[in-house]
């Protein structure tokens, strides 16, 4: 059971669009807010495409999709989220931007509205500190692509009330997601372990321990991981990896979080990964060479 009926999503980018699909699909009235109408329009188009495929694959009926899409609306004003019982923010990863947004939302939303943040690298407690409702604030870190990944890392800030956490937890389950509870710790669980692991894999390449294809084959064969670390880095993009790793390192100063020098060299050389046709591997179309 969840007390939440209407869900707000602030930020209609990669993550916000996915989170809105998750909420709407689960039957919640969902309102997406973005300051840029073009971001809302693009997300709407992608969302309609996503649900059209769900009908094709017989996961949902056309009637269900019509109802979901009717209940999924958009706004370019913060005031458009005034009726929400929870607002999940997925705006730019910038503390000032997030504080500006939350301050505005705090003015328009009723006292019971819970605020949640999808931040990957900022502290929930620090974001909450600028929200005007630190006790009704919680971390809900979805994975990319949110509309397909079930995991949500949930963290209470230092001042989050037990009641808020419980309400948000029940809501997360009501959306059909799988929440895990973690401390408000840099990188939460996933990035805290993944980023240093990927850095270590890059250091293996850097030190000449083995070639990327040998490292990936070894990891997949010996441990059954679906992807090797270097394939995964090529998919994520080395520029994105650098951003997240730098944030993690700044917060923890753990040596394994420090980005190996090879990453900056590859970025300088335009080898960002799949999206530039090459990273640790060379790509042409969908094919991968050097594997």
């Amino acid at each position: 059971m969840t007390a939440i009926k209407t869900v707000g999503v602030a930020g209609s980018g990669t993550m916000g669009a996915g989170i809105a699909i998750v909420a709407a699909r689960a039957g919640f009235k969902t309102i997406v807010y973005d300051t840029r109408p073009e971001a809302l329009a693009r997300a709407r188009k992608q969302t309609e495409g996503f649900f059209a495929k769900s009908v094709e694959r017989k996961k949902l009926t056309q009637e269900q999709v019509d109802r979901i899409l009717a209940d999924l609306t958009a706004t370019t004003e913060a005031a458009g989220l005034a009726a929400c019982d929870i607002v999940i923010e997925a705006v730019f990863e910038d503390l000032k931007v997030k504080h500006g947004l939350l301050e505005a939302l705090n003015r328009v939303c009723p006292p019971h509205t819970i605020f949640a943040s999808n931040t990957s690298t900022l502290s929930i407690t620090e974001i909450a500190a600028g929200s005007g409702r630190e006790d009704r604030f919680v971390g809900t870190h979805f994975c990319l692509p949110a509309q397909l990944m079930k995991l949500v890392e949930m963290s209470p800030g230092l001042k989050t009330s037990d009641e808020t956490f419980q309400t948000a937890w029940d809501f997360c389950k009501a959306m059909g997601q799988v929440p895990v509870k973690t401390k408000d710790n840099p990188g939460f669980i996933l990035n805290y372990f993944l980023i240093p692991f990927n850095n270590d894999a890059i250091r293996l390449v850097e030190a000449g321990v083995a070639a990327p294809a040998d490292i990936d084959r070894a990891i997949k064969t010996a441990l059954g991981y679906p992807m090797g670390p270097l394939e995964l880095l090529d998919l994520v993009g080395l520029d994105t990896h650098l951003l997240v790793a730098e944030a993690l390192y700044a917060a923890t100063h753990e040596p394994r979080a420090a980005v190996p020098a090879l990453v900056r060299r590859m970025i300088a050389a335009g080898r960002l990964g799949r999206k530039t046709g090459g990273g640790f591997y060379t790509y042409s179309g969908n094919a991968m060479f050097g594997g």
Binding site: C143, M149, K150, L151, E153, V178, V180, K181, T182, K183, N185, I189, L190, Y192, F193, L194, L223, G224, Y225, P226, M227
Partner: peptide, 21 residues
Amino acid sequence: EGLASADDLDTTLKLGLGYPE
């Protein structure tokens, strides 16, 4: 250090990265 329970640590890596265990 209590970052999360053993089950939640395991679940996160399985669901988040597709590790078998």
